[in-house]
């Protein structure tokens, strides 16, 4: 691998990791409070992207449809919590997991019903198209740079939220001990809703970035990102937000460089490698890199 190639792959990995991170944060937030592995989180990403397509079809400029799409995604996150998950509070972990699978299937098929099974082109804004040539023949795609920048800005905002605002601190407190949080007078419902809304907003942005990256929108486009984000949260430690971000970048780099370094006939197995790694992590260090949660072992 030449230095130029390496540079390109580096940016690419950073960008992929950024998208995973945006998705993984929402998963980790909700998990830390509810112990719910929300598989339907991938569908919030899909909804964000689909909303983008539908709104752009109406002829809206992207500066208008992007925030609208994120708003729609946030609404979807709210609805999901209200309709499917709130009645399940306190149910066993696996019941929650299965419910989220049900939500995921329902939403995917809802999209299938409205979109059809054919992929639609994503209306990537022109400013995100094309490459920026750098010295030494290196080219960096605009989408990647913008992805990285947006992810950094959002993560800084999130850090400010959880360390400086009352709701953010209450969220961390609830994640640590829900009963103690209630004894402090924290309305845990508010906190849970906030977690869903923030997670959905980040997923909506991720949907925009993912759509711009792959250039198309499909009803099942949320599946792969949510699986990867999920692996990221396992790597970093279930329920730890910094862990999820770290795990996402590790995964982004692992994936890009695995493909770059593996012999050709093995590259198509990269998902298999990733999940072998997932199982190994679960066995060896189920609390992940940054997670402090006691592993749920027998």
């Amino acid at each position: 691998m030449s230095a130029a190639e390496f540079g390109q792959q580096f940016i690419n990995a950073l960008s992929l990791g950024s998208i995973y991170a945006l998705v993984a944060i929402g998963l980790a937030m909700v998990f830390s409070i509810l112990r719910l592995i929300n598989f339907a989180h991938g569908e919030t990403l899909m909804i964000g992207a689909v909303a983008g397509v539908v709104l752009a079809d109406r002829g809206l400029p992207w500066l208008i449809w992007l925030p609208l799409a994120v708003l729609i995604t946030v609404g979807a996150g709210w609805l999901m919590e209200r309709v499917a998950y709130r009645p399940m509070r306190g149910a066993p972990d696996v019941t929650l997991l299965l419910t989220s699978l049900g939500v995921s299937i329902a939403l995917q098929n809802g999209a299938l019903l409205t979109l059809g099974s054919q992929p639609r082109p994503f209306p990537t804004p022109a400013v995100l198209g094309g490459q920026i040539p750098l010295a030494g023949g290196v080219q960096i795609s605009r989408v990647n740079l913008v992805t990285i920048a947006i992810a950094i800005v959002l993560m800084i905002a999130l850090t400010w939220f959880v360390t400086r605002t009352q709701t953010g601190i209450a969220m961390r407190a609830t994640a640590e001990n829900a009963m103690a949080a209630r004894l402090m007078g924290i309305n845990t419902n508010t906190v849970i809703i906030a977690a869903f809304l923030i997670g959905a907003a980040l997923a909506g942005v991720a949907g925009f970035l993912w759509g711009s990256r792959v250039g198309r929108v499909e009803y099942d486009m949320g599946f792969i990102p949510v699986l990867k984000a999920f692996v990221a949260t396992v790597i970093g430690g279930f329920g730890s937000i910094p862990g999820a971000v770290l795990g996402a970048y590790i995964l982004g780099f692992g994936e890009i460089f695995l493909v770059a370094l593996l012999p050709d006939y093995l590259t198509s197995y990269r998902d298999a490698f990733i999940f072998v790694a997932l199982i190994l992590i679960l066995l060896i260090r189920p609390q992940g890199i940054l997670g402090s949660t006691e592993p749920e072992k027998i």
């Binding site: 066993p92 972990d93 696996v94 279930f238 997932l278 072992k297």
Partner: peptide, 13 residues
């Protein structure tokens, strides 16, 4: 050796 969510996820893997 795992239980709950972890085993569900590992078998999904």
């Amino acid at each position: 050796r795992l239980s709950g969510n972890y085993v569900a996820v590992a078998t999904m893997g």
